[in-house]
């Protein structure tokens, strides 16, 4: 069970959190301009890397706020957390 450092509350047990999948998937501004395939990419396709991943978590049983986490999918090590709207760490993009 991970310990996740909520940027608002501090480190808490994983059981307090909900997972939101890959972060920085921006909703298209003009969905009609997209082909079926492009729209499908937005809805379904994720990078699923082995290694560093930027992902969304919500402190569901705490402050109920969403935030971003940089985590290694092999070691599970969390290297950074940052608030929504803050830029993604460069090296991991």
């Amino acid at each position: 069970m991970l310990i996740i450092p909520c940027p608002w509350c501090g480190p808490r047990e994983q059981t307090e959190f909900a997972y939101g999948g890959e972060a920085h998937i921006v909703r298209p501004k003009d969905p009609d301009a997209l082909s079926d395939e492009q729209w499908g990419d937005y809805v379904f396709m994720r990078r699923n890397p082995k290694g560093r991943l930027l992902e969304q978590w919500a402190h569901a049983f705490g402050c109920r706020r969403w935030f971003n986490v940089e985590r290694d999918t092999v070691s599970y090590a969390i290297t950074r957390v940052y608030k929504p709207g803050e830029p993604a760490p460069e090296e991991a993009r």
Binding site: G20, V26, A58
Partner: peptide, 11 residues
């Protein structure tokens, strides 16, 4: 509730 919060906070 969680769904609406998520859209408001992240998008």
């Amino acid at each position: 509730m969680a769904w609406l919060e998520r859209w408001l906070q992240t998008e």
